[in-house]
Design a protein around this nucleic acid. Structure first.
Lengths: 292, 292
DNA sequence: ATTGTTCATAGATGTGGTCTATAGCTCCTG
DNA sequence: CAGGAGCTATAGACCACATCTATGAACAAT
């Protein structure tokens, strides 16, 4: 017995409606097709499943036993189809994003809020980590997409450039004398510099920039979060290297000002990473469109 | 979404084996057929279910959710098919028989034992009742077949003639003087007659026979079971009208003897009744063959 | 490089699911 | 009792579509 499952669908409706004619209407078939399908099923099983009379059909004992199984099976398939539809329309599902805390807080938050309002059925899972950690999350399949600073070079990953971010040095009132100056790199190095402690993209970038000009940047203070970078700068503990967009509020209100340099600091994109050649969930696709 | 269930079978095996090629082998298809089927399913659902690589396929998040449903569904269908096979081969099932106690005890018992030994997986359900009761059991679908005395005339029923039974009058030692005589009906009526009390086929038959000869038979004693008919005759309380085959033991051992009459008592068949135009279960078919 | 996997694609093929038409049956109704 | 209105079964025709063969492309391993 290696039946075409389609026959069970026909059987289900014939049994449920008690009529081959009704089943045919439900399935958009003709009555002879249904009659034929039922006969096929009966032949392959080797048992009579229905008795027929001029009012329709009724299950035999054995047909009723079969129905008790097929009914359950049909319910599951129906649930599955409903679930799939829900996943497709984002009434349901999961979206798992990896990234740094600061990107979540300063850059992704509005998008996350927006997405959650539009698709409240989709559960959001945020996993923070450094860029290499996020990449391994992706490769392990623990997240659907990663949001990190460019550049990323990994043949397994597909990276979409998103928002442009500009890092810069900022200071607070304690260094007000620098407000209208344009500093050279070696001048800057005479001031205490506050850098992000972890192996972040930004930390690597600024180190490389100084090296390319023949200097070595050594922070006076290292801190573990962007919030502390900002806070320390405000309190006059030094000059922090931060992403300008993350301190826009402080720059506006004047609690921080940008320390300009005589060399350009290259901007960097936020990259949306996904696994190359791996299909995305509907939720992930939609979220990336949203950021787009 | 109104999918061909057959696609889910292909999906199940592709997911389970993690390989379209393996799934194809399992399903006795070619790999392109499976590939095509999966694509069809994905298109109709509107979601990607697998990601493909050179090692095979793996479920996406959404595919995994679908699989969790389809797997259960598949298990149920497999169980259903196994159950059907068991029903067909009589490893499982039910056989519901209606009839009189005396027929069960004196006639069907060896067949029931035989059947039960051959097919221990089939549960036997015995429902006793008078002939009209058994007929309604049948029509209500509470039994698969009825075993009663012929003749039965009912257009809804199909009746197979089975064993031939011969009713006769028997007496015990108290009436030893009748042993070698051949009695006329009116002579017999001078003795106390013991008849079955209920509206049995045998009771009706003997009443009609006497009436056809112009006599009325009125029992001295009426009893409610064949066992009592036999017991009362043995104890000399009268002459019992019983089925000869049911007292064969007593006739052999001499505790009862047949009272011969000068008129023939017509034999009657045991009839196996089933509903006309209603398919029988495998168990019922097999049992009827066995009696055949 | 070469070989052996994998899945995808294109196009040919033919099977079998579906159709139309019709018959047979039962029940109901005027 | 004839006629109609349900129902299912059967026969035969047909064509859609599931499946096939052949091939390509990508990747892994040797």
């Amino acid at each position: 017995m290696n039946n075409n499952y389609e026959l069970y669908k026909v059987f289900y409706w014939a049994a449920k409606t008690g009529s081959l004619t009704q089943a045919a209407k439900t399935l958009f078939l003709t009555q002879p097709s249904v009659s034929h399908a039922i006969k096929q099923l009966e032949d392959s099983i080797g048992l009579t499943l229905f008795y027929r009379n001029s009012k329709g059909v009724a299950l035999t004992q054995e047909g009723a036993i079969l129905y008790s199984y097929i009914e359950q099976s049909h319910i599951l398939i129906t649930l599955a189809e409903e679930k799939m539809a829900a996943l497709k329309t984002l009434e349901s599902g999961d979206l798992r994003i990896g990234g740094s805390d600061s990107l979540f807080k300063h850059y992704l938050l509005p998008y996350l809020e927006d997405f959650h309002l539009k698709y409240p059925g989709v559960k959001l899972h945020l996993n923070h980590g450094t860029t290499p950690e996020v990449i391994s999350f992706l490769k392990e399949g623990r997240i659907d997409l990663g949001v990190v600073r460019m550049p990323i070079v990994d043949p397994q990953l597909q990276v979409r450039e998103s928002f442009l971010l500009q890092d810069c040095f900022v200071a607070g009132a304690a260094y007000a004398e620098l407000k209208d100056k344009v500093l050279s790199l070696d001048t800057l190095l005479q001031y205490p510099v506050i850098l992000f402690s972890r192996n972040s993209r930004a930390r690597m970038t600024i180190t490389e920039i100084f090296q390319s000009y023949g200097y070595t940047i050594k922070p006076e203070i290292e801190v573990g979060s962007v919030d502390l970078l900002i806070e320390f700068a405000r309190r006059g503990l030094g000059i922090s290297y931060v992403t300008r967009e993350f301190v826009s509020k402080e720059l506006e209100e004047g609690s921080l000002f940008e320390v300009r340099l005589d060399v350009p600091l290259p901007p960097s994109h936020v990259g949306i990473m996904t696994m190359r050649n791996m299909p995305l969930t509907s939720a992930a696709i939609r979220f990336i469109e949203l950021i787009g």
